[in-house]
Design a protein around this nucleic acid. Structure first.
Lengths: 197, 197
DNA sequence: CCCATTTTGTAGCGATCGTTACAAAATGGA
DNA sequence: TCCATTTTGTAACGATCGCTACAAAATGGG
């Protein structure tokens, strides 16, 4: 066998993730990644091949540890509409409680890299696809529970919610104002085709 | 008097704007700005003090030449709702006809820099404030024309439209698909409180 | 106990980063 | 025409960029 590694890969990815999340791909240096992970450049390049491919691994890590985690935490609640509302509320809380506030690695990367990097775009498409599907499932459960009208087009509304979520991510970095964001989420939720018996 | 400058400042700002727009602040080098503007670093640093302050000038330039131009072009049309619709449609067209597609310098900068740079955030706030006000005025004219219900809260709906616009900007970089975006804009427009006589 | 294998730390590679010093070039006023 | 003033082109500054060569360190199998 070989010399054992001093670090567990998920921990390295989590720490690198926070750096890329805060500073972006171009704004993150390998020196900065060394400091954040505690690994030397040698070890980083030994396990990952380049800054680019480390970033790709970090994107996958983010999709599992943040996106999927938040889906499981909020969008699978018994009360589907209440879970959806809490998902949006927690998005702002999640952003604003960080110093400095950090929006979403997928949205950041979309505007920084997805126009030119097709591999990155495919990863973002996959991550946001998970969200769109989770929104659609959540809305479908709300329909079955009688919260939404039976003729609700869940797929289209899921895409609309994804659109609004991405809007919230941009807006919350410019206007870190809970009251404003809460009012915006009110508007998003009120637009859904709720069932008036 | 002194030696005359070989270039007009608005032209320099427009060319620098396109570079920052496409590659972001961190992803743009001064060498790249030299090539795009035709000026040497000496001349750039003579007229602007630093890359940072050139970027600030570029942001102001963008607000006038792109944001305000698009407001005047679409949101002041006689048919307010039709103008609003065309504003959203043209947003996608505007993005997708560029190679590579470029979303919006304000949104890009919001996710790259506004969390940590308060001066930049203030500029973004100003630019998006222009848009929010223009949306509100447009909606108000739609109310007066009987297109929207008289009890429409134009300020809140303006903020909602701004939210959706920012969502469109992110989504269009990941899904450069006209049909998908058009359907999303359908949903945004349909949510408005239209007047059913 | 030595070997094959992998990770680690050190040190530094060539390239590029943002920025600047300096002098020649180009103007209008005196 | 000479001067004061500003822009221009050339050249390069120290710092940092992504990345790597190399050998010492640390393991399990033989």
């Amino acid at each position: 066998m070989a010399r054992p590694s001093r670090f567990r890969e998920p921990d390295v990815l989590t720490r690198a993730m926070l750096v890329f999340w805060q500073h972006g791909f171009a704004g993150t240096s390998v020196r900065h990644l060394e400091q954040a992970t505690g690994l030397t450049a040698s070890s980083l390049y030994n396990r990952f091949d380049s800054k680019e491919s480390l970033f790709a691994s970090v994107l996958d890590h983010y999709i599992v540890k943040v996106v999927q985690w938040r889906i499981d935490r909020y969008l699978l609640a018994d009360d589907a509409l209440a879970g959806l509302r809490r998902f949006f509320d927690s998005t702002y809380d999640y952003i604003s409680e960080q110093r400095p506030p950090m929006a979403c690695l997928l949205a950041n990367t979309a505007l920084e890299k997805s126009a030119t990097d097709m591999a990155v775009r495919a990863q973002l498409d996959r991550g946001l696809g998970l969200l769109e599907d989770a929104f659609a499932d959540c809305l479908q459960r709300a329909v079955q529970a009688g919260q939404l009208r039976a003729d609700c087009d869940c797929r289209r509304w899921a895409r609309h919610l994804l659109l609004c979520l991405q809007g919230v991510l941009v807006d919350s970095t410019i206007h870190p104002d809970h009251a404003r964001l809460s009012q915006l989420v009110d508007g998003v939720m009120a637009a859904l085709p709720v069932n008036h018996h």
